[in-house]
Each structure stands twice: as C-alpha cells, then as structure tokens.
Nucleic acid binder design. Structure first.
Lengths: 164, 164
DNA sequence: CAGCTGGCTTATGGTCGGCTGAGCCAGCTA
DNA sequence: TAGCTGGCTCAGCCGACCATAAGCCAGCTG
C-alpha cells in the first residue's frame, strides 16, 4: 500500500470487490468539468455579476461565457436576476446561490495547491480572514475537530451506497 | 455586492484595476483539467497502483489511461517505480508523490459537494478519521484556527503578485 | 431618429479528450 | 516452443471545448 493512499475498512475491503460507480466526485465533475466554468466561478466569488465582467476578467470569448453562464444557471450554481442601473434599461445579472457558494472550498483548495507547487514567488492573491486578518486555507477535519492527514483517513461505506 | 462574494481590500480595490492573470487556480487547472485525471487521482488515493487497476476501476480506456498516467508522472503528481511480484517479471507501478497527496483537499471538497448536492440518499463512500472514527470533511480555516465562511473572506495582494 | 452600448447569438473551424479495435512485446507457464 | 497475460501503442473516429468574426436587439443619449 502506498504511503499516500487511504486505508480501507469494513465493507469496502477488499478493494477489488467494489467500484466507485455513482461516485460523488464523478458527479460533481459532470457539473463543473471545464476550465471556463472554474474561471467563471472564480470571478463570481471575486464579485463579478455582469456578462461583460465575466468575459473581460476571464479572457473567455463571448459564446463560451454565454454557454457556461447558462449551464451554471441551469445547475442552480448561479441565479439570474434582473437589475437596473440609473438611466439604464433593465438587464440580467448573475449571482451565486448557496449551492454555488459551497464550491468555495474546492476553489480555495485548488488555488492553494497552485500557490504551493506552481508559483515561484508564492501566491499572487491571498485570502484573509476578515477582521482577524490571518491567512485562510482549506484543510481536512473530522467532526471531533481533529486535523486529518492522508495517512489517517479510512474509507467506509456511506448511506448512499448501492447494496447488491 | 452579492451576499456570496468575497470582500476586497487594499491594493485589490477597485476590482476593475486588476485581473487574475497568473492565477494559481488557472495554473492548477492547466495541470489537472480533465475528468480522466481526477478519476485516476481518486483511484490513486484509494490505493490503486497498477495500470490494470486504473483502467478497470475508472472505466477509462487503455489509451487515455496511459496518456494520463504519463502526464501525471511528468507533472510529478505520480511517480513510476519498478516492482516485481513473485513469479512475475518486473513491472512499473504508480504511486503518489507528496505533491500529488496535497491534492487531497481538492478531491475531498469536490466529493463532499457532490454528496451534498447531487446525491439522493447521501454519500456512497464516507471518509473517517482513523481511530476516532468521526466523519471527515474539507473546510476553510485561518491561521488563528477560526472557521471561515464566504462572507468573512477578504482578498489581498500576495508575495507573488505582479507589480506594474 | 441615428448612433452607441451591453448582452448576447450564429457560423465556422481548430484542437483536445475520449472511444473502439487492433496490434505489440516481455517474460512466465505448459 | 506455443500460448497467455500485463502493460502498453497505434489508427481512426466522434463530440466537446474554445476561438474569431459577424450580426442582432433593446433602449438610452445626442
């Protein structure tokens, strides 16, 4: 067993007896699989709401941006809502739903991995805890609030597992 | 400003004055952008090391598996090493490097989002803390160990920012 | 009422990600 | 020596992802 692999317990042992069919990771990737979707979500977290902001800040083309916004809205990660600036006509803007907001740990985790392994001089952008000002990162915790490393993880069958 | 967006501080305000060029998230996505790469990493975390395990458990075809293993090895996320089972010839297997292991929070975060929003009956597979047995999840913390929600985040310029 | 702007859509084409099906090579086993 | 198995490679194809270039429409501003 590799040093960086997760231990198996209970009904998941032996590994040869099951596959990850119906896996939540695969399902999540079916919803947000593309680079463009991640970039649009990044900008949504950064506060972008208007079409032009999304294209301008991500460098994506108009057609891709439009298609992705449609898909993310369809998936209820973004919500379209009308708005009106003074002296302007009514337009649509895009805001994060709670479902979308819960993708934040994914984004932060990816970003910090990039900061650590792919940048020379460290993070170009840092996340800070408002008020306290300390840097923010994503980490694994158990419900008893212990910090958890790879070697301390066990896999177990959950409530959504298919019985056979 | 949307309720689910991050606040800006200091040199990052106003947002119109900067773009996320050189962003770590985009760089990370350049390394692991495909569904197949995520699935292979999932299986590597679950303990797979041999070519046949990767193809069998992910459902990916041979050519894609081979190409992805090559790319992940090239990116130093996996490491090839020779091994030999008794009465067999020497073969190669793939193991996670430390760089690869640090992608675990990304995988866990994606998986838990899928568990929460895309499954009917909850997680098919659960992660537990070895020994203590409590369920494990990914979350955001600051260096002072406070739990951090979306509305409590601030963006600031980091050491790797481009000055102009 | 002409023009401009924001927010798109349409058309076209290149590159990438994935599949199937076939073949190849090393070395063990019969 | 012939076959089998694991770990691949090669060829050919299709659909998804992304770009560029152009056009469209609503409604404000001159």
């Amino acid at each position: 067993m590799s040093a960086n692999a997760i231990q198996m317990t209970g009904r998941l042992e032996p590994r040869a007896a099951w596959t990850a069919e119906g896996c939540s990771l695969a399902k999540a990737l079916d919803v947000v699989r593309t680079r463009s979707a991640f970039l649009i979500l990044r900008e949504a977290f950064y506060g972008a709401t208007r079409f032009e902001e999304f294209t301008g800040r991500t460098g994506l083309s108009d057609p891709v941006t439009a298609e992705r916004l449609r898909e993310l809205t369809e998936a209820e990660i973004l919500r379209r809502e009308p708005y009106r600036e003074p002296g302007q006509r009514t337009r649509e803007r895009y805001r994060m739903t709670d479902k979308g907001a819960e993708l934040l740990p994914v984004m932060v985790a990816l970003m910090q991995w990039g900061d650590r392994w792919l940048q020379r001089r460290g993070a170009p952008v840092e996340l800070r805890h408002e008020g306290c000002g300390a840097r923010v990162h994503a980490e694994l915790r158990c419900e008893d609030d212990h910090r958890v490393g790879v070697e301390e993880l066990e896999l177990a069958s959950g409530p959504g597992a298919r019985r056979r």
